[in-house]
Design a protein around this nucleic acid. Structure first.
Length: 606
RNA sequence: CGGGAUGUGGCGCAGCUUGGUAGCGCACUCGCUUUGGGAGCGAGGGGUCGCAGGUUCAAAUCCUGUCAUCCCGACCA
C-alpha cells in the first residue's frame, strides 16, 4: 500500500529524487519543496521538524517527552496539542488501521459536528448530568451550545432522521473526530487532554441477539486493531459511567503511567477495572457470638487506636474484625441529597471511585453537617439502632458475622455486634478498597493489581438513548420496535501515546512497522544522491520511507535523530556504499549488520 | 478542590539573597575546517525578564496584587 497516496490513481507530480542536488535544498519553490510528496520519501531537508536535544521541563511521562522531543506534537494550551507533520503522518497510519478494521465489520464512516446544541442534551439529561467536564458556550443570541464529549445523542437522532423500517437494520456508524472534555487537570501530554481524538462507533439493532452480535463484532475488531497497533492490553469488565448502559468492557493498555487500576487473575483470566471488582460474599452463618456489650474506649477515633485499646481490655482483635462506618453526602443530579453511611471492614478504606461508580449519576462528597444529625457521633458510629440515615454495608458483612464497631456515643464502642441480630443494613455496596491478593470472584485465587491506560471502552447502551428520542422501527407485522444501541470508543490520541509508552527506550521511540510514519529511515552520510536513489527505490517497493538528506549535519546527530524518531529500520548509506553495501539497523533490537544493496528490499519486506 | 514548585530569546538554565540597564549551553545565520554515534574555531541575529501597580535617581532583582504553567493528591473516561 502506498501510504502517502491519498488518491489511488494519482502519480507523482514532483521531480524524481535523482534530479535534486547534493545539498538537498536546491529545489526552491514549487511542488518539489514538499518533504513528502505523493509517492515519495519524506525528505528531512525540507520536513517541518525540529528535534529537541533536551527534555522539555514540563514533560514527565515518556510518551509526552519523546513525542515533544521528536517533533511529533507541540503543546498549544493545557491539554491541547498540535500535530506536526510527523505526528500527522503517524495519526494517518493509526486512523488507516482503524478504518480498515471498521470497514471489515461493515461499519460506515460519517462525520458529525463537535459544536452541538444544548436542547439535544437536555433531552438526554446529560446537560445536567455531565457536569463541569462539559465544555459549554453561548452564541450571540444567547443560545447554549456545547463541544461534544461523545456523540450518542447525535447518532441516535441521525438514525431516527433517516430510518424507520426493520428492513433498515442493523446498522453501525462511526466517526473519527475531536472530542472535548474540560478536564480539571489535564496531564501527561496526550494521555489526558481537554481536546483529543476519538473514534466512536454506534450500533443499532432490532433485537437483543442483534445487539450481542454487533457488540461481539466491534469487540473482535478492536482486538485486531490493537494487535496491529502493537499494544499490550487487557480487556476488563468496567462500569459504564456517564454514557450509561449495561454490558461494559474497557481495553486497558498496560503502562506504569496508567491512571486506571485493574485487578487480574492469572488462574481463571478474570480481569476487571477496580471500580467493577465484585467482592465474593461469604454465606450467612449461625449466630455464635454472645450478646452485644458496650465498652469505654476513650480516644479511639481511628481503627488502629481502637484495636490497641480493645486488646488492652483483654480481647485480641484485628482491624479486619472491626466495622468502619463512613458518612458521605450523596447528591442526586436533580440537586436533592441525603447522607449515606457505608460500612466496611476496618482494615479497608472506602474507595470513593468505587462508591461513585455504584451510585452514578449521583455524586459523592465527604459529609460534614454532623450538627443536623445528632445521632451521628463522628468516630463512634455503629449500625445498630441507627435511625433516619441510609446504611449500606460491604458484601463481607453477612448475617451472623460479628463486629466491633462504634456504639453511637462519644468514647464508646460495641463488641459482638451481629449482622442480622443487632442490625440489618439497608443493602450491600461495593465500595471498599480492593487489594492485591483479594479473592478472585471467578475462582477464589488471589487477584493481582495492575495499572493501565484506558484506550477503548465498549458497552451495550440498550435503550438508554433510543428511549429518550423514541427511535423505533416498524417490524414486519406493523408493530413498533424500540432500537437497541451499542457504543464503542477508541481514544486515538491516547492509543498513540500508549504505543509510545510501550515502545521506546532511553534513545527514543520505536514504532511498530504497521503504523510508523516511516518504516525505513535512510541516513545519508556524505552521499546524498545515493541515499535519495535508495529511498526512491524502497518507496517504489511499497515501503514508507524517510531520508535524512539534510546538509551540514554531523553523523552523530543523524544517528541520534534516527533513534529518537523511531522508524523500525534504519539504513545507513555510508563508507561501504561504493562496494554495494549499506548498514541496516533494527531499531528495536539495536542490531546492526551490513547488507548488500540488492538484498535490502527483500530483507525489509519480511 | 487541597499540597508543592516555577514563570528570564525556540529549548534547557544561571542571575534575584546584597537593586546599577541581561548572561550561559543547545538550536538558528555566515565563513573556514571536520565528516560513522549529539564536531572545532571565528563572526552574528534574536529576550518590553508572565502581567499590573508600588518603592527608588535606578527594579529581572525589593513590596503588593494578579494571571499562567507544571508536579503530587482528590476528582473525572
Amino acid at each position: 500500500m502506498r501510504a502517502h497516496a491519498n488518491s489511488p490513481g494519482m502519480t507523482s507530480i514532483t521531480a524524481p529524487a535523482r534530479a535534486v542536488g547534493p545539498a538537498g535544498n536546491s529545489v526552491a519553490g514549487g511542488p518539489g519543496t514538499s518533504p513528502y510528496s505523493l509517492g515519495m520519501a519524506i525528505r528531512m531537508s525540507t520536513l517541518f521538524l525540529r528535534t529537541l536535544r533536551e527534555d522539555p521541563a514540563d514533560a514527565e511521562v515518556p510518551s509526552h517527552r519523546l513525542l515533544l522531543r521528536g517533533g511529533y506534537i507541540r503543546r498549544s494550551s493545557p491539554g491541547v496539542y498540535s500535530w506536526l507533520p510527523l505526528g500527522r503522518l503517524l495519526l494517518d497510519q493509526v486512523n488507516r488501521v482503524i478504518r480498515e478494521e471498521m470497514a471489515a465489520t461493515g461499519a460506515q464512516e460519517v462525520s458529525l459536528p463537535s459544536l452541538l446544541p444544548r436542547d439535544v442534551f437536555d433531552e438526554s439529561g446529560r446537560w445536567t448530568e455531565y457536569g463541569e467536564e462539559m465544555f459549554r458556550l453561548r452564541d450571540r443570541r444567547g443560545g447554549d451550545y456545547l463541544l461534544g464529549p461523545t456523540h450518542e445523542e447525535m447518532f441516535t437522532l441521525l438514525v431516527k432522521d433517516l430510518y424507520s423500517s426493520y428492513r433498515d437494520y442493523p446498522v453501525t456508524l462511526f466517526q473519527i473526530g475531536t472530542k472535548f472534555r474540560d478536564e480539571k487537570r489535564p496531564r501527561a501530554g496526550l494521555l489526558r487532554g481537554r481536546e483529543f481524538l476519538m473514534k466512536d462507533a454506534y450500533s443499532f439493532d432490532l433485537t437483543r441477539e442483534g445487539l450481542d452480535a454487533s457488540y461481539a463484532a466491534q469487540r473482535a475488531a478492536y482486538i485486531r486493531v490493537f494487535a496491529r497497533l502493537g499494544l499490550t492490553y487487557e480487556i476488563v469488565t468496567a462500569v459504564s459511567g456517564p454514557m450509561g448502559g449495561s454490558a461494559s468492557e474497557e481495553f486497558l493498555a498496560r503502562a506504569a503511567v496508567g491512571e486506571d487500576t485493574y485487578a487480574g487473575c492469572s488462574a481463571c483470566g478474570y480481569a476487571a477495572n477496580v471500580e467493577a471488582v465484585v467482592t465474593p460474599a461469604p454465606a450467612a452463618q449461625p449466630v455464635t457470638a454472645p450478646a452485644m456489650t458496650v465498652v469505654d474506649t476513650p480516644d479511639t477515633p481511628t481503627i488502629e487506636s481502637l484495636v490497641k485499646v480493645i486488646g488492652e481490655l483483654g480481647r485480641d482483635i484485628t482491624a479486619a474484625q472491626t466495622l468502619k462506618n463512613v458518612v458521605f453526602f450523596v447528591r442526586e443530579p436533580d440537586g436533592t441529597g441525603a447522607p449515606l453511611i457505608v460500612g466496611v471492614p476496618g482494615d479497608r478504606d472506602v474507595d470513593q471511585k468505587r462508591l461513585e461508580a455504584v451510585l452514578y449519576p449521583a455524586t459523592v462528597s465527604i459529609f460534614e453537617d454532623f450538627a443536623a444529625y445528632p445521632q451521628l457521633v463522628p468516630g463512634y458510629i455503629g449500625p445498630q439502632g441507627l435511625e433516619g440515615v441510609r446504611y449500606l454495608a460491604d458484601p463481607r458483612v453477612t448475617d451472623g458475622t460479628a463486629w466491633v464497631t462504634g456504639a453511637n456515643a462519644e468514647g464508646k464502642h460495641a463488641l459482638d455486634v451481629v449482622c442480622g441480630r443487632d442490625f440489618t443494613p439497608d443493602g450491600t455496596i461495593e465500595a471498599a478498597t480492593v487489594r492485591e491478593g483479594d479473592p478472585c470472584p471467578g475462582c477464589g485465587n488471589g487477584l493481582s493489581m495492575e495499572r493501565g491506560i484506558e484506550i477503548a471502552h465498549i458497552f451495550q447502551l440498550g435503550t438508554r438513548y433510543t428511549d429518550v428520542y423514541g427511535l423505533d422501527a416498524l417490524d414486519a407485522s406493523g408493530e413498533l420496535t424500540r432500537i437497541l444501541m451499542g457504543s464503542y470508543g477508541i481514544g486515538v490520541s491516547r492509543a498513540i501515546a500508549s504505543i509510545a509508552e510501550q515502545h521506546h527506550d532511553e534513545h527514543g521511540l520505536m514504532w511498530p512497522a504497521e503504523i510508523a510514519p516511516a518504516q525505513v529511515h535512510v541516513v545519508a552520510l556524505g552521499n546524498v544522491d545515493a541515499a535519495l536513489d535508495l529511498a526512491a527505490s524502497l518507496e517504489s517497493a511499497g515501503l514508507r520511507v524517510m531520508v535524512d538528506d539534510r546538509a551540514g549535519i554531523s553523523a552523530g546527530v543523524r544517528f541520534a535523530d534516527a533513534d529518537l524518531l523511531g522508524a523500525p529500520h534504519i539504513v545507513v548509506v555510508g563508507r561501504r556504499y561504493p562496494d554495494g553495501y549499506v548498514e541496516l539497523k533494527t531499531r528495536a533490537t539495536g542490531n546492526r549488520e551490513d547488507v548488500q544493496l540488492d538484498a535490502l528490499t527483500s530483507r525489509l519486506a519480511r
